[in-house]
Computed example of a mutant assay.
Amino acid sequence: MGVINEVEEVTKNNTRLQLIVAVGYSGKYDVLQACRGIAQRVKDGESKTSGELRVSNFLLWQLAYTKIFFAQELWPDFGRNGFVEALMSFQQRQRRFGGRKS
């Protein structure tokens, strides 16, 4: 028996108090399951990366209000020029935290 079912059973005759439970859903479990499925398909040779520049629902709760820079170089080749390009890109952005530009 699950915890919720057990609490309902134990308190079913209570009449004086009302318990309201609010549950936050972040999608973390769904992302974890998706990652495990993708990893298994890659391991089995059934899936490859698309090469597109997008997050595809990956880590959405961590990416809220995140500014992303996609470098053209792969990580081993990323150096001073790429770093300066990223810094310049970020300098041109305005942090609005979801609000409209004023």
Rank of each mutant, 00 (worst) to 15 (best):
residue 19 L to R: 05
residue 20 I to Y: 07
residue 20 I to Q: 10
residue 20 I to D: 10
residue 21 V to C: 14
residue 21 V to Q: 09
residue 22 A to N: 09
residue 22 A to C: 08
residue 26 S to I: 12
residue 26 S to P: 04
residue 26 S to F: 14
residue 27 G to R: 03
residue 27 G to N: 04
residue 28 K to W: 07
residue 28 K to G: 15
residue 29 Y to T: 12
residue 32 L to R: 03
residue 32 L to M: 04
residue 33 Q to K: 11
residue 33 Q to G: 06
residue 33 Q to P: 00
residue 34 A to M: 05
residue 35 C to S: 05
residue 35 C to H: 11
residue 36 R to Y: 10
residue 36 R to W: 09
residue 36 R to H: 13
residue 37 G to K: 07
residue 38 I to D: 10
residue 38 I to M: 00
residue 39 A to L: 11
residue 39 A to P: 08
residue 40 Q to P: 01
residue 40 Q to W: 02
residue 40 Q to M: 05
residue 40 Q to F: 06
residue 40 Q to Y: 05
residue 41 R to G: 01
residue 42 V to N: 00
residue 42 V to E: 01
residue 42 V to T: 07
residue 42 V to M: 00
residue 43 K to A: 06
residue 43 K to W: 07
residue 45 G to D: 03
residue 45 G to R: 02
residue 46 E to T: 02
residue 47 S to Y: 09
residue 47 S to R: 08
residue 47 S to W: 03
residue 47 S to I: 01
residue 49 T to C: 11
residue 50 S to R: 13
residue 50 S to P: 04
residue 52 E to R: 04
residue 52 E to P: 04
residue 53 L to A: 06
residue 54 R to Y: 11
residue 54 R to G: 14
residue 55 V to R: 14
residue 55 V to D: 08
residue 56 S to L: 03
residue 56 S to Q: 12
residue 57 N to Q: 04
residue 57 N to W: 01
residue 57 N to E: 00
residue 59 L to T: 12
residue 59 L to V: 14
residue 59 L to W: 10
residue 60 L to Q: 10
residue 61 W to Q: 12
residue 62 Q to A: 14
residue 62 Q to N: 15
residue 62 Q to C: 14
residue 62 Q to L: 15
residue 62 Q to M: 10
residue 64 A to R: 12
residue 64 A to D: 15
residue 65 Y to E: 04
residue 66 T to F: 07
residue 67 K to I: 07
residue 67 K to Y: 15
residue 67 K to D: 13
residue 68 I to T: 01
residue 69 F to T: 01
residue 69 F to P: 03
residue 70 F to R: 01
residue 70 F to T: 08
residue 72 Q to D: 13
residue 72 Q to I: 12
residue 73 E to G: 00
residue 73 E to K: 02
residue 74 L to V: 08
residue 74 L to N: 05
residue 74 L to Y: 04
residue 75 W to I: 02
residue 75 W to G: 02
residue 76 P to F: 11
residue 76 P to L: 08
residue 76 P to E: 09
residue 76 P to M: 05
residue 77 D to N: 10
residue 78 F to T: 03
residue 80 R to L: 13
residue 81 N to E: 12
residue 82 G to P: 00
residue 82 G to E: 03
residue 82 G to K: 00
residue 82 G to L: 01
residue 83 F to Y: 15
residue 83 F to T: 08
residue 84 V to A: 05
residue 86 A to T: 02
residue 86 A to E: 02
residue 87 L to K: 13
residue 87 L to E: 01
residue 87 L to N: 04
residue 88 M to E: 13
residue 88 M to R: 14
residue 89 S to P: 02
residue 89 S to M: 04
residue 89 S to V: 10
residue 90 F to Y: 12
residue 92 Q to T: 15
residue 92 Q to S: 09
residue 92 Q to M: 13
residue 92 Q to P: 06
residue 93 R to W: 07
